[in-house]
Design a binder for these strands. Structure first.
Lengths: 165, 165
DNA sequence: TGACAATAGTTGATCGTTCAATCATGAGGA
DNA sequence: TCCTCATGATTGAACGATCAACTATTGTCA
């Protein structure tokens, strides 16, 4: 009934996809929660900061890279700030802007947490896919992402969206 | 830093995948919220019931089909019950079990909501993928799902997991 | 039969997300 | 310059999800 306008193949793909997108985030959340008392979205925020020059980013830029709404990011950063993992600074260029900075303690948490997290990602995703499937996944996800966010407003500026040559 | 043990291709695939899994659920949620004041997970519950014989399912079976925890499903059904879309009945076979039944009002909501929802799914996913990519997506999602839930405890009993012949 | 464990599901507290409202600063035009 | 609007970000309330504890029923075995 619900999927009356999807054909059989689409329906199978959609069901499997729904299962994956329902279960994978919880699995990653649980792993991070056990090892570091951390949510996946909090971890993403720390990870993005850890990769940025000066380990700091404007809130808006950080929101884009984490695919997060301004509000959600603000709350997340507030929680991380309370734990001493991140610090806020007023932007020097634009008095309206805030800059989130990863503290040393925050850096240590990323360093301690990354291995286990990457192992989980490997285990659940890349270990069960062939190299070809990894490439296919990138193409598929990029295509969907392009429709969800055509302007790239919610995406990082540089990479991640290169169509087949 | 965070993804130090993923190679370039894996990294690109993972970033795109994260973006998709972050943005797609919100997009579907928003569409359903606008049209029917309904969450995606609530919709799934109603849709699963609408497809079941007698428009009813045991709570545990419904949880498996919706990839939901018992607790989450119980809360969701309680909310739907308050809105008159679902009703609970004690199982006749097993006095511990409860059965969720889709009411006529619930059925009407599914009928009214499905077209717009399917259109959104089409727009964001299937319209931007080739038939080949749809097949690839099914293979990929099934493989990941198999690792996330090896016993199929959280999956429907019959379909959705047929590997390459 | 009685005791104990396992199963099915619910509940309340807590935490994270969403939404609408708000505040402060910067930019542009009369 | 002053007024207005746009931008960057935060806040609090309401809602949904998660976790641990709990109730009720069934199954098992001595």
């Amino acid at each position: 009934m619900a999927n009356q306008w999807l054909d059989d193949g689409e329906q199978r793909a959609w069901r499997a996809f729904l299962g994956m997108t329902e279960l994978l985030p919880s699995a990653l959340d649980q792993q991070l929660q056990r090892e570091s008392e951390m949510t996946h979205s909090s971890y993403i925020v720390l990870a993005m900061l850890s990769e940025a020059p000066g380990r700091s980013l404007r809130m808006s830029e950080l929101a884009a890279r984490a695919h997060s709404s301004p509000s959600r990011l603000s709350h997340t950063v507030s929680r991380l700030e309370k734990r001493g993992l991140v610090r806020r600074e007023r932007s020097t260029e634009d008095g309206r802007g805030n800059v989130a900075v990863l503290t040393d303690a925050g850096w240590d948490v990323v360093v301690a947490t990354a291995p286990g997290h990457v192992a989980a990602v490997r285990r659940f995703v890349f270990d069960v896919l062939t190299p070809e499937q990894v490439h296919q996944l990138e193409q598929i996800a990029s295509a969907v992402l392009g429709e969800l966010d055509p302007d790239g407003t919610l995406r990082p500026p540089s990479p991640a969206a290169n169509p087949e040559p």
